[in-house]
Amino acid sequence: MLNIAKTIREKRRAHGYTQERLAQALGLTPAAVSKWETGQTLPDVTMLGPLAAMLGITTDELLGFDPDVSEEHAEELVEPARDALARRDISGAIERCERAAAPPHKHHARLRRGVRTHGDRTGSLRRGRPCTVPDAGRRREDRARAQHRAV
């Protein structure tokens, strides 16, 4: 399970940022950061790259992704195959091994590639189209212009 709330809170404090300062840097309200840290909401996918950069971590760290499998988790993955071998079900054991080695989601590689390249605008989840998410500074400028026009 994702534990983004705890990661955001700990890393923000470690960098000495207030919720207000982090929110301002990302072009958001302090309430949005507060909701992330309490687990009421999750950051929008477009904010993962800028947020991770502000916190000095990778998006993998922000999302809690660890490519190393713990000993206990490895045992959990292998146990069904061992059971099948004990029953002399070779094809069942092979199937369970293949299932254990498969990525957790059918679009796992595409999702990781999209999140990893978001920050430098070189990738997108949509068939290689360039990412069009503006950086946080530009968002603030656009919002300020819009407010100025409205007055």
Rank of each mutant, 00 (worst) to 15 (best):
L55G: 09
Q24I: 11
A86C: 04
R129F: 05
R116V: 10
L26H: 03
L28V: 08
R138D: 14
R110T: 07
D83I: 08
I90A: 06
A32Q: 07
R121D: 09
P30T: 08
L48E: 06
L63I: 03
P43C: 11
L111K: 03
L28K: 01
R99C: 11
L125G: 04
A101M: 14
T58K: 01
E95G: 05
S124V: 03
D60S: 15
G128F: 08
A32L: 09
R121H: 14
G64D: 09
H118E: 06
P104N: 12
T41V: 13
G92T: 03
R145Y: 10
E71W: 05
E37G: 10
L51T: 00
A109M: 10
R129C: 11
I90Y: 09
V33S: 08
E95F: 10
P130V: 02
D66W: 01
R96W: 04
Q24R: 13
V133W: 07
D44K: 03
A74C: 12
G92N: 00
G137V: 04
S70I: 15
G39R: 00
P134I: 04
P104E: 15
L42H: 06
A102I: 09
R127Q: 15
V45M: 10
L28W: 03
A93R: 03
C131S: 05
L63Y: 05
A23E: 01
P43F: 06
A25F: 05
H73V: 13
R82N: 07
R116A: 15
E76I: 10
D142K: 09
F65V: 10
L62N: 02
S91A: 13
D44W: 11
Q24E: 15
C97M: 14
V133G: 06
E72W: 02
E20V: 11
L77M: 10
R143P: 00
D135V: 02
C97K: 04
R129T: 12
A102H: 06
L63E: 05
E79V: 12
A136Q: 03
T59R: 01
I90R: 05
A86M: 09
R145M: 11
R99A: 14
T59P: 05
R140A: 04
R127L: 12
L26Y: 00
V78G: 06
S70Q: 14
P67Q: 02
A100I: 08
D135T: 02
R21H: 14
M47H: 06
R99W: 02
R88D: 07
K106A: 12
E72H: 08
P130I: 00
H73F: 12
R145I: 11
L48D: 00
R82M: 11
E72T: 14
R127H: 14
T58N: 02
A101K: 11
L85N: 01
D89K: 06
T117V: 05
T117H: 09
E61N: 05
P50F: 02
R139Q: 11
V45F: 12
A101G: 10
A86V: 13
E61L: 01
M47W: 03
C97H: 01
F65E: 04
D89H: 07
E61I: 03
R139S: 06
A93D: 08
L77P: 00
T59L: 04
L55P: 01
L51D: 00
T122G: 15
A136H: 00
E61T: 09
I57V: 13
T59W: 04
L42D: 13
T117M: 04
R140D: 02
A86P: 01
D60A: 15
T132G: 10
H73T: 12
